[in-house]
Design a protein around this nucleic acid. Structure first.
Lengths: 197, 197
DNA sequence: CTCATTCGGGAACGATCGCTCCCATACCTC
DNA sequence: GAGGTATGGGAGCGATCGTTCCCGAATGAG
């Protein structure tokens, strides 16, 4: 029934995610979004309700694509655990640098910009964080079980350290820090897991 | 000559720092600042030129007080290096929680919000980061020299790991994460330094 | 005291903010 | 084809943005 859309809603969400990711929530205006998504204010509001709702959509899309890809790359699937972890972290601080640099992580940027002020946003960032922690936990458990990591490794402590390190790496990538130094930090974090094997 | 100020400029900078710290640059309006600093727009602009310049003043003030205090707490002065490091990191994630929580680190918040877009801001955040790294380096060197840390400790790598961890801790404090988990991450980071002594 | 100078207070500038409304247009259903 | 419906385009809403200007008040210098 009625006239169909002339734009792809999913594509619009992708462009919105990119813009929010680079500039943050407050620095991105509805008119910026309109120009980037190539749709008028009326279409934008009819489709996405308002700026805040579109931002939540962008966060959800980021989690369903970028975050999901990160989680997938953490799946060992028989490969050496240390290698998987190292490649994963190196990818985290370099993937955003393809083409243009300093985007960091959309979730981390959002968490620091909005803090705990927005309940809906916080729920999503926390969920994204928890997924990462769980993926790290699974990987470390697998490494400990198959002997690649020390049998007395404190998984909970290692997860907290690695997860915290990852957040720091994301901040540093956003801040434009030297990739070699980030690589040094990554190797040090992995070495902290212990020396078995 | 002429009429003197009725307000304390330094006190105004302190209040401005507090506001920028909590809300970030873009989310803080000049009128918000005026209400907090209890001065009219004309006084604000006559004294601080404009919003951006006042923000730089706030960043400088933060570095001269909070950052300087952090650096000071990293000075071992004969105390055990691990203990100094642990107390320092615990203080980092708890000091901002006195009274009101989730402020994180003003420098980290700024670096993630503005990224590398603002040259004047970036210069200041990078300078603050470098000070922290140097303080960590000095502490680790002292620990290695007096036998508290392994003699074969890779100082550069350890600095990168600790510094990255600290940034992650700041993000997590801002995000309202459980202090106990942050403490777990801190202990894991220190344990990663090695087991001598 | 006089005067130049800077102050505090506040109105108001143009621009932009997030958002709404209207209408001709284009499509699906019947 | 006719009718109902959601679309795209765009003017424009009130509010707020960062900033400027003006003016009476208060002060130090001569």
């Amino acid at each position: 029934m009625a006239r169909p859309r002339q734009f792809d809603e999913q594509d619009a969400v992708i462009r919105a995610t990119d813009l929010f990711w680079r500039r943050g929530y407050n620095a991105t205006s509805v008119r910026d979004l309109g120009a980037e998504l190539q749709l008028t204010p009326s279409s934008l509001y009819r489709t996405f309700t308002d700026k805040h709702t579109l931002f939540l959509r962008a966060l959800d899309h980021y989690r369903a694509t970028d975050s999901a890809q990160a989680e997938q790359r953490l799946d060992a699937a028989g490969r050496p655990v240390r290698r998987v972890l190292r490649d994963w972290m190196l990818w985290l601080v370099s993937c955003a640098s393809d083409g243009e640099s300093g985007r960091g992580c959309f979730v981390v940027n959002t968490a620091t910009e909005l803090g705990t002020t927005d309940a809906q946003v916080r729920q999503r960032t926390e969920a994204a964080f928890e997924v990462t922690r769980q993926a790290l936990r699974s990987l470390l458990r697998e490494g400990r079980n198959n002997g690649e990591l020390p049998t007395d490794l404190d998984i909970d402590a290692a997860v907290e350290l690695l997860f915290t390190t990852v957040l720091g790496l994301r901040v540093r990538e956003r801040a434009g820090h030297d990739p070699e130094r980030l690589a040094t930090a990554i190797d040090a974090a992995i070495q902290a897991l212990g020396s078995t094997r």
